[in-house]
């Protein structure tokens, strides 16, 4: 694809897009338009067109020879969540909450408006939402801080999600167009080899952060357990993470590989899958890495 030419996408054979694909498409279209180029999509089936249109994937895109049809909402209930783009850290809290709510959606037999459990103060619905909200918080925070470093101040993040009722699975995708893991961790002593795949592995290790040890002179400090925690949420809920950055892809329950020539993701793209019925059992204590040392101080809990 020449970097100056307009882009024409032949979508006549497209029959399925998951949230990961949707977020990657949204980010790619945005990049192309920002370069002053236009995007045309042709041959899209009515069903795919209607679906993607409903998901807001086509912002500023010209559809040629396609007939987008409005999607019938009742088909998928409220588990449909439009593609969302965020650019500022202050949006992280609200967006994580809203998106987690939307994707957890309507569960037969569980009423979001039921009174909360007297002991815990939570409704059954809120127990499902919280781990998803937690994971989104960590991933969005990363994308709106780390990704903007090393010459990518305008990086944005795209979020898409969907619940698949037949499998009982939730998929979330958080995709940014920032600096990528390798740029962020290039000087970290734990990075064994200067490659994208090694950078992904390094970022997943507990207590690895680009600025854990810089001291308080830097703008912020981090603890380096956000990705580890997110991975454990997926794992405990019977799911996985798929992470792409640069020329590498890593599937936490499958294989990792290098993409072939010309295929490259500038930034970090994360897909998270989990079983919805396993979410209420997640306890934060089981997500955090074991402590290296005994606490040096008694904490005052009241």
């Amino acid at each position: 694809m020449e970097a100056t030419a307009d882009v024409v996408v032949n979508a006549s054979r497209l029959c399925f897009v998951d949230p990961f694909g949707m977020a990657l498409l949204g980010a790619t279209f945005h990049t192309i338009r920002n370069q002053g180029r236009s995007v045309q999509i042709c041959g899209l089936s009515a069903e795919m067109g209607g679906y993607l249109e409903r998901m807001d994937v086509f912002e500023g895109i010209e559809l040629v020879d396609c007939a987008p049809m409005p999607m019938q909402r009742h088909n998928r209930g409220d588990s449909l969540v439009e593609l969302t783009r965020l650019g500022a850290r202050r949006d992280v809290d609200e967006a994580s909450f809203r998106l987690a709510h939307a994707v957890v959606g309507h569960i037969p037999g569980i009423n979001p408006d039921e009174p909360p459990d007297e002991m815990t103060g939570y409704t059954a619905f809120e127990r499902l939402v919280e781990p998803v909200q937690y994971a989104l918080n960590e991933l969005l925070e990363n994308a709106l801080t780390h990704a903007k470093g090393h010459g990518f101040p305008d990086a944005c993040v795209w979020v898409a999600s969907q619940y698949y009722p037949r499998k009982g699975m939730i998929q979330l995708a958080v995709v940014d167009d920032g600096c990528g893991f390798l740029a962020s961790l290039r000087n970290h002593p734990a990075l064994r080899r200067e490659s994208h795949i090694d950078a992904i592995f390094t970022a997943l290790m507990p207590r690895i952060s680009c600025n854990r040890d810089l001291g308080l002179s830097s703008e912020s400090v981090n603890q380096g357990v956000g990705l580890t925690t997110t991975f454990r949420i997926a794992e405990q809920a019977g799911g996985r993470l798929v992470i792409a950055s640069g020329d590498a892809i890593h599937d936490t329950v499958g294989r990792s590989y290098q993409l072939t020539e010309d295929n490259f993701w500038q930034g970090v793209a994360v897909a998270m899958e989990c079983r919805r019925d396993r979410l209420p059992d997640i306890r934060f204590r089981d997500l955090l890495p074991p402590l290296d040392a005994q606490p040096v101080r008694r904490l005052r809990f009241e």
């Binding site: 850290r89 202050r90 992280v92 809290d93 609200e94 994580s96 909450f97 987690a100 709510h101 103060g121 939570y122 809120e126 939402v129 919280e130 909200q133 937690y134 918080n137 925070e141 801080t145 912020s220």
Partner: peptide
Amino acid sequence: AYGHLIGARATAS
């Protein structure tokens, strides 16, 4: 908190 969770670093700072 949003719902029951407080998440973002910016809120804490």
